[in-house]
Design a binder for these strands. Structure first.
Lengths: 250, 250
DNA sequence: TAGATTGTTAATCGATTAACAATC
DNA sequence: TAGATTGTTAATCGATTAACAATC
């Protein structure tokens, strides 16, 4: 019984598969490269990326060299070249079409549309339960009633949905989105949304994030010694070396 | 040099430390228990929790039994009891005091204050750059100018900050927060915030989440076979058993 | 050349899974 | 009692780290 699953696992082996953790790091690196480029830098070492990302430099190099050698020994990585490579690896050049459920978030996060556009994520349509918004535009995006959502998005080929408001019928809305062809949902609400296998869902949960943060703090304060588990990276090594009288390279 | 760090690591060993991944799962379980309780259930099996959390049942049991035996063989877990235990483990009964930078999010996410309160997370004060809001209340929370933030929060013992809007001077604001005693920051803006070692930071990044989601979808569609890596849990095992003619227990 | 930093391997570490005896 | 489900161990798997030869 369990063995059937194992058998399938053997078949589905795919060498080029990138783990979720790696993807998370790669987009962090990309973010860091953006800010370094804005700061006027042209090259960067794995040590510097590691310091800013809070990981070890070896891991940065491993992540990057897995896709080919982007750096030059003793020089580091060319920032604009590495950015281009990362955007390729993360498939950021492919257009992603998004339906937004609830328009209020655009008033709160006024740069959201632009920030998404940088990564070729396009909000194509807004659906709302707010009757006063029907057939009006929010930030030049047309605003439609939730009813008929499935047929609507089927016609314009939408793959993603951001659910930013939930009425009582949120599960019905999500089901309609999925039957309309949506493959992945980003849920910003407190609703516990069920999706069928094969559909991706990611929940952003502010109270939950605070719990995790609070726990990390608590956890740390129970140690009497400095907790290198948490801050153990190259920068610390350099600092320790410094304390030991060695000359840390910055 | 590296060895100094290793030596410290040996000293800081703490058996009771819970990994970040475990904490993330525990709060997911708690969320699931909440929704099951609302649905009227009294007990739940590890298999059911696992199905809803998208993990294997053995992992659920392992996570839970690590803190003591909360369940009864052949019965499962008592939901309200398990909730209480999880709230204890996650230290949700301790009050957490929060400063909110930027008030607009409360207009977008109208339940946020209440959702935080359920976990004893209290927004005590709002800071804003919007002069029209100075000394007014937003949702019964007093609203203050950013200037003098450090002294202000020192007086009222704030440990957390949610940064929901960033002016150009966001790093200065964060530095002031930290010098005022803030130990952890939840960053909802696109700003790349630097914090000193020992201060926790967590970034919520909507475009980044979409990239990750999109990547997972892409990754999956490159397989010809069903990808059990992604949906490999007890429910799938049951389904496979079913396909094989066995009688799956639901 | 000497120094710096990459690419890459083998070793380590930690997290998950499979499996089953114990318990209800 | 028979069936279900927990608690827990040993085995497996995957991710990170240490370390260093190769390269600029």
């Amino acid at each position: 019984m369990g063995s059937s699953v194992s058998d399938f696992n053997l078949l589905s082996g795919n060498e080029s598969k990138i783990s979720e953790r790696t993807v998370d790091r790669l987009r962090k690196y990309l973010c860091i490269l953006d800010s370094l480029e804005i700061a006027g830098d042209y090259t960067v070492s794995s040590t510097e990326i590691a310091r800013l990302a809070g990981v070890k430099s070896g891991l940065v190099r491993k992540d990057l060299c897995h896709f080919g050698g982007f750096g030059r020994p003793s020089v580091g990585y060319n920032i604009s070249y590495l950015k281009k490579q990362l955007r390729n690896i993360l498939k950021l050049n492919e257009e992603k079409h998004i339906a937004l459920i609830g328009g209020k978030i655009l008033q709160f996060d006024i740069n959201l549309v632009d920030r998404l556009a940088v990564n070729n994520c396009r909000i194509d349509v807004i659906f709302t339960t707010d009757e006063t918004k029907y057939d009006t535009d929010i930030k030049q995006l047309s605003c439609h009633p939730i009813e008929g959502i499935s047929k609507f998005i089927k016609n314009i080929d939408i793959q993603f949905a951001i659910v930013s408001e939930c009425g009582d019928d949120y599960q019905t809305v999500v089901d309609a989105l999925i039957s309309g062809g949506v493959k992945a949902i980003l849920n910003l609400t407190q609703a516990v949304i069920k999706v069928p296998y094969g559909i991706e869902i990611s929940n952003i949960d502010i109270p939950g994030e605070l719990i995790a943060l609070s726990f990390k703090c608590k956890d740390k304060s129970t140690h009497n010694t400095i907790n290198f588990d948490i801050i153990d990276n190259d920068a610390v090594q350099a600092e320790v070396a410094h304390l030991n009288g060695a000359n840390p390279n910055r």
